[in-house]
Write a protein that binds this DNA or RNA. Structure first.
Lengths: 207, 207
DNA sequence: GCCCTAGACTTCGTATACAACGTGTATGGA
DNA sequence: TCCATACACGTTGTATACGAAGTCTAGGGC
């Protein structure tokens, strides 16, 4: 693993999932000291994150962790909805809905539900959604979708999933999606997806 | 303009639009010499392009300009279709279809139609499509869509648009889209979009 | 003629140095 | 007390140097 990868991972998993850094400027030297490499690989990691839209590089100032506005959050969720609904429609039409895998992911998620393990909970959440997206077999769709989700996580999704109440709600909503898919009921699936995304959006907006 | 921007632009507009570099390895030093800067900013530009999926960085080999497989091209067009159809649907529902602007872009495109100015023709083509996407007001959608289109251009779209026959066909297909939009006819719009993308895909696949 | 091997060469990955630029602050004056 | 100005500091942007690692080629063995 190169120093660049180390810096990239550190930033993406440790820094960008922390709601506290919203609106802060990170200097390259600071990050370099934390990771234990020189500025060069840190800089490269930042460039990549900037290309993905996760940070904003301000000349002579540093890497700015722009707080996601509510408008951007809405746009993000709207886009995710477009992609997920398409994936559901295609998977149902092609008969490639990965019902078994989705149920498995859902059960795994239910097992480790606890406020302390919010990050793991979110990882499995991502897996659940990704299964449907991946079932389309469209690698570019997966890539695009993942990028969107990474952004939403950066917007402070972790904090949101830290309460037992919300975790339970997520599990219920996922259950509804997978049930509708298993029944081959497209309209119900689309409604369940919209409901799930809408609920998350509203919660994230009011937090 | 920084050296990084110079390198980025050079690569994106000059190198990546050239079908001849498909499958080639570019060394950082070569590019640096061409642009007239050191390796550092070139490297940074490459990292950004890699994050966007436009080049592939192979350790100790160089930046690989991966030829787009027909599978990837199909995926790309499928995704573009999803986004464009959504944009059309939303714009029609909200009554925000920019008919006048689209007609203007179409006319401008018709005026400069000539094989020699394929790049300009493509720029206006991009503008036409972007107008519809932008009318949704979703900046993240615009960003995502633009990224997809950049990739398709890299796949050799320029060569395709160099014949008068194809240019005429594009204009016809665009006309069909804008007419359907102006009529407020959603099914016809969706069909016109699918037809346009499908035609382009088929041509690009057989080239 | 083919394959294997060794060595030179190329290329990247990283550290470091320095210059340019902008920001924030302290100081002096009104 | 407020404001303007100048200076010091911090930060980025770029060049350069060096080490590590992989690739390609030439040569020898089979």
């Amino acid at each position: 693993m190169t120093g660049r990868d180390k810096a990239y991972e550190y930033l993406k998993t440790t820094v960008l999932t922390d709601p506290g850094v919203q609106g802060e400027f990170l200097s390259e030297q600071e990050i370099a000291d934390s990771v234990g490499v020189s500025r060069t690989p840190v800089r490269e990691a930042l460039l990549m994150l900037a290309a993905e839209g996760l940070v904003q590089l301000v000349p002579k100032r540093g890497a700015y962790i722009a707080p996601l506005t509510s408008k951007e959050l809405r746009e993000l969720v709207e886009l995710r909805g477009v992609l997920e609904r398409f994936a559901a429609e295609k998977a149902l039409a092609d008969g490639t809905v990965p019902v078994a895998e989705m149920r498995a992911a859902l059960e795994a998620q239910a097992r480790l539900a606890s406020p302390e393990r919010a990050k793991d909970f979110i990882d499995l959440d991502a897996q659940f959604h990704s299964l449907l997206i991946a079932s389309t077999g469209n690698a570019m769709l997966i890539r695009t979708y993942t990028g969107l989700r990474d952004r939403q996580i950066r917007a402070g999704l972790v904090a949101l999933f830290s309460t037992p109440r919300r975790q339970a709600a997520v599990l219920r909503e996922h259950q509804a999606i997978v049930d509708a898919l298993a029944a081959g009921d497209l309209p119900a699936t689309l409604a369940a997806i919209d409901d799930h995304l809408g609920t998350t959006l509203n919660l994230q907006l009011t937090n």
